[in-house]
Design a protein around this nucleic acid. Structure first.
Lengths: 139, 139, 139, 139
DNA sequence: GTGGTCTAGACCACT
DNA sequence: GTGGTCTAGACCACT
């Protein structure tokens, strides 16, 4: 599970982390019963305060997405609320709307945007290839 | 100048409004010397509190993007800080990065994203066509 | 709305405060649309940390019992989740169960417990009479 | 000695177990020199972690209520701290206060509370009768 | 004024 | 080790 915080995005840290966990649950990268990193561990990985992670876990637990077991750890709920993937895709579509609107305001053509998309997709593919190759090398 | 607020985006209202004004200045939709809507007017249009608009105008004035003329109104600065367009395009590229990353996490292919983008672009074109046709009718 | 914290009860402060607000909502002492004390105000009244109050309001909002309006205040939700009163009465019955069990373990007779109940009820009646008389005097 | 844990009460498990042992010592159900269940046994009976039981025994030993004899077991102290029963009854009276207050907040009359109490007492009597009858059968 | 986010740190409860 | 509660305090966003 890759999580990352973008300081430039303007979104509160808690929102960014929660969104990404929601995405992973919807996509199946996180499955029912999976253990999440401990509060302290994730806080250290993301270089944020443990209370901030705790707040995210609390909210997602209230949403029914996670389960916290005292003294044991935090887990993806056994029975995920339904319709997650659809909701996530709709949220994504809405973000694409926003982005296209902004690109249009900047006077970019459709082709330019497609090119930016492709460049971003390429960068991501490369980044993840590198990561997995490195992972193999470590084995 | 089209401005809109998305309550679902998670971004603070001030940030959304400021970003859009910055974009318009960078793109040339707003040009040096152009008058912005009055604080009260914009607040009413966006259905937000005037103080929120005021804070945006203050912030953009501090950035050198706007000029407030006492008793007259708020205007785009005569001499815009340079490099705005480039900065805006870079910010956009970064958002596209984030979005592609999220789409990938949701298990979407590059083609699917392009399709979503085209749909969004189509919707926007239609919306603006309608708006301008309606505008002509009003003249 | 009377709220009080008992340090001897062993229950976390957040739980005590949340329980009492739930009770008031179920009983109708707090009605849909009613404004709650501000986070800072309630924190001061109860002599606890504002973050603690905030956490209570957050949880009850997630439960659908309260609504927070940014920059405005916290309110009882317009449409309360149904079945609150029944749930509260059941919770109370369960507590009475616990208490009777403990009294029995202490070797108290049924009559003794009834007498304790009556004494407690008398004390409370007197306390609230005094409070309302004082309230009238202040007018 | 009957012990039970209520997950709905909001009280920490350690507190619940310790309270009940204190009650039994005050009431004389547990007498000086009596052997308590082993840490593992009690943990198994209550379906909790042995460390949790251990912490309770440690705490009550520090209070002077229990004595741990290395390699032998845990026992009620030979000389119990004085005034236990009175303290327990006062704690109970305080809980009744809390409960009456909450019932009043829920708009219940004194009669209703008495009725709830009688129902609870009846249930408990039946439960213990059944348990002792079953116990005789086992002999 | 109102709520919201985040950090830092102490101490507790459960496995 | 794990999560949970609470305090203190800084700074931000919205009415």
């Amino acid at each position: 599970m890759y999580l990352r915080i973008e300081t430039t995005s303007g979104l509160p840290i808690t929102r960014q982390v929660a969104d990404q966990i929601r995405t992973h649950c919807a996509a199946g990268t996180l499955r029912p019963g999976d253990r999440l990193p401990s509060v302290r561990q994730l806080a250290q990985d993301l270089a944020i305060n443990p209370n901030t992670v705790l707040r995210v876990y609390e909210r997602l637990t209230a949403e029914g997405l996670l389960e916290r077991r005292h003294g044991d750890g935090t887990f993806v709920a056994d029975r995920l609320p339904s319709g997650r993937l659809k909701a996530e895709r709709e949220a994504l579509a809405q973000e694409i709307d926003r982005l296209v609107r902004r690109a249009a305001d900047l006077g970019m053509s459709g082709e330019e945007i497609h090119r930016l998309f492709d460049a971003a997709a390429g960068r991501l593919r490369k980044e993840r290839d590198d990561a997995s190759r490195k992972g193999q090398a470590n084995e």
